[in-house]
Amino acid sequence: MKKDDYIPLFESKAAGWRGVYWFYAISMAVSVSLICIHRVMHFPHQKGLARWAWIGISMAELWFVTYWIITQFARYRAVSRYTFKDRLSRRYEDGLPCVDIFVSTADPQLEPPLMVADTVLSLMAYDYPPEKLSVYLSDDGCSDLVFYALYEASKFSRVWLPFCRSFNVELRAPNAYFSAVKELPSDDPSLAKEWREVKKLYNEMEAQITDIMKLGRVPDHLRKHHKGLREWESGVSRSNHHTILQVLIDGRGNKEVDIEGKPLPMLLYLAREKRPGYAHNFKAGAMNALIRVSSRISNGSIILNLDCDHYSNNPQSVRDALCFFMDEKQGHNIAYVQHPQKFDKE
């Protein structure tokens, strides 16, 4: 692309509420100044409890003032950023980079396997070439319950991904979607039938995972469904086990496809080796292991990292990030993009 033809893939604009912010900031600054003046003018000259109380209150107020000033740096020049994904597609659709997605979990009791499965499915359903997408799950709890949930998710993905395309689903975590959409979204009988069938399949998967969670283990008759479950037959414990690496969906070479014959993203499970007496460095160690493993398998040039309890509610998230990384003029200055987070109300 010639320099004269440059059209940015994103733009930054000053936030529209800056006037309101400045009114708030100035009024707060005046209030803080008046409080400080009041404290100085009413310094207790007599010694004793009154002076110590004044010192304590003043120190507390000083701390809150300092904290308030620090937080203003993030709001001083607030901007809104807008991406142009249509421009990205026109220029680079055939040359989009491979993306490795890292998901971390550590405890099947605190982070239910069904929630992990929903998060993984929302990532696999990204609006992105599936052959360039690889999802890695790091399980620091080394739980066969999590592995089984991921196995069930890998089967359901063959139906869920085409469903998301057919219905143009925005919220691609199944549980969140079916909780939000209570009624059939179409009057077309064929689409209505498909919607009911997919919801039924998800309910069956949900019931299956919930049952094994109540049982606390994967029953013997289910262990034969995937060879990876044999790894837990050799006395594996959470803090003492060998490395378990299983490819549930091998997306290389379009080997595995969904019910419409379209390729699926790669899906892998990793429980890194742990031994008593050796520090595993928690999530930092998990990230390090994921980077080493992915570099030998998919070696994506872009890494997307998120926790297992933060499903993606925007199927365009990867393309949004690439608008920053692949901008011809500004992209070389950008190494990290943080997506906004939204917390569901309980």
Rank of each mutant, 00 (worst) to 15 (best):
M59Y: 02
E152M: 10
F156T: 07
A335D: 09
W232Q: 03
L267Y: 07
A50R: 14
K255G: 03
I303R: 15
Q341V: 15
D307V: 04
R18C: 01
K329D: 03
V257S: 00
R39S: 10
S295P: 01
S317A: 14
Y269L: 05
S312G: 05
Q208S: 13
V247N: 11
Y92L: 15
F167M: 14
W22G: 00
A153L: 09
G331V: 01
P276V: 09
R158T: 13
E204H: 09
L201S: 14
H221Q: 06
S122T: 05
I303A: 12
F167Y: 11
Y126H: 07
C308Y: 04
Q341F: 08
E152R: 15
D307L: 11
P113A: 05
H241E: 10
Q338K: 13
V65W: 10
C36E: 12
R272S: 09
E260D: 15
H226M: 02
R230Q: 11
M41H: 05
R87T: 08
K345Y: 05
R172C: 10
L171D: 10
D250F: 07
V103G: 06
V135R: 00
F43K: 02
N299W: 03
A180M: 13
Y148N: 02
E206F: 06
G141T: 04
Y21N: 05
W232G: 02
F147T: 05
I244K: 10
W52G: 01
K224L: 06
L121Y: 04
P97Y: 09
I7T: 14
H45F: 07
N203A: 12
P174H: 10
H280L: 01
G253W: 00
R75Y: 14
S166E: 15
A53C: 04
L245Q: 13
E328H: 08
A50S: 13
V218C: 06
R165H: 10
L264A: 06
D327W: 05
S138D: 00
M213S: 06
S295F: 03
E231W: 13
E170C: 04
G253V: 06
G216Y: 08
M1F: 04
M326V: 03
W54S: 08
H221A: 04
V120C: 07
N313V: 14
T83S: 07
I7Y: 09
A286T: 14
I209Q: 02
F325A: 05
A78S: 09
Q341L: 15
V20K: 11
R172G: 01
S298M: 03
V181N: 10
L245H: 15
F102R: 01
S122K: 04
Y177L: 13
R319F: 02
L248P: 07
K255T: 10
S80D: 12
I37S: 06
C36P: 00
Q208V: 08
W54C: 08
P219E: 02
K199G: 01
M287N: 07
D220N: 05
A289D: 15
S312Q: 04
K345N: 07
M213R: 11
V318D: 08
P276M: 09
S138Y: 08
P340V: 07
K47N: 11
S104H: 12
P219M: 03
K329F: 07
K345A: 10
N240D: 15
Y128R: 05
L34Q: 06
S33R: 00
A74P: 00
F178A: 11
A29V: 06
D250K: 09
V318C: 12
C142I: 07
Q330E: 12
L248E: 12
M115K: 07
E206L: 07
A149C: 05
M59S: 12
